[in-house]
Computed example of a mutant assay.
Amino acid sequence: MRKASLAHLLVIDKPRNERSQAQNEPGRSRLIPRAGYDRLALMAGLSLVPISIAASEFFLSIAVVLRLVRLARSQTRMDFPRCFWFWLLWTGLEFVVWVQSPRPALGWSEIRHIILVGSLFAALPALGRKKDCRTVWKAIFITSSLSSVFLIGEFFWRLAHYRREISAGGDAGFYLRSGGLLHHWMVYGTVEILVVAGLLSFWSVYREERRRWWPSACINGLAVLLSLTRMAWITCLLLLGIDLLWRRSKWILALPLLPVALYVLAPSGVRLRLKLL
């Protein structure tokens, strides 16, 4: 029954009694980390995505290495899902294109990212408990709020500092757009779309915690508006509409008024950005 209930996982851990017996075997090295360190490293890596991609990759790499150690010591086993084979085909095609490129050094960073994504097939099952998943999402909401606070502050600083250039006809997106702690508006927009999707899902499932996460929702919503990334605006508005339709909320009737209200209340830099649509 236990194996059947965990069939959806990529890696299936041994029962606790078997793990304790294996740890007590004579000759077992004490340098091998105990089960749980890979989970902590994975949680840290996922939680740091909104503020530092480099730090996130560092901890994710640690989680993968620790997970591979457990695999080598037969403390867990691999069980690939169906999507893995589609990913493998896609990765193989990208690798062929990369090898045939006249300047393969320029594409090494993308190959490294693909390998890191593939390694997550082994690391992600460490989050086998619902409590761990909730903890990670809460940490992501906190770190994304921190990054969003920096973006909001930088927006108003740039608005005051470059007011003369913008008034003279300068592009508001060029002078005002930033990426918070991620330092690039495109990376920030991509991550923030995922954060908004997580917030909406968390909001729907854990209704008793809505009041606690209101500040985070407001900060991230304001930061999305001030990011001046139009695709992030459209995507987040679409996600909100899908969530309201899914919950059959009457607030869906007021959704068309939201862009109008934001346009009226938004700073001048946001309105200038909208005029370029």
Rank of each mutant, 00 (worst) to 15 (best):
L66M: 15
A105I: 05
W98Q: 08
I53G: 08
Q75C: 06
F95H: 02
R30G: 03
F84S: 01
L40H: 13
F59G: 06
L88W: 05
F95E: 00
A72N: 11
H113C: 00
A55S: 12
S47T: 14
A55P: 03
V99I: 14
G118R: 02
A55W: 07
W90T: 07
Q75V: 02
F80G: 01
R39E: 13
R30S: 14
V64F: 15
H113P: 00
D38E: 15
R30W: 08
L42S: 03
R77W: 12
V96S: 03
A54Y: 10
R112N: 07
V97H: 00
F84W: 11
L88A: 13
I62F: 14
S74K: 14
E57I: 14
W98K: 01
E94P: 00
V49I: 15
I111N: 00
G107A: 03
R112A: 10
W108D: 00
L48C: 07
S74N: 13
I53Y: 12
A72V: 09
A35G: 04
F80Y: 15
R77Y: 11
S56G: 15
Y37H: 13
V69K: 07
G92M: 05
T76N: 11
T91P: 00
V69N: 04
E57F: 13
L71M: 09
I51M: 07
L42C: 04
V49Y: 04
R67I: 09
A54W: 09
A54M: 09
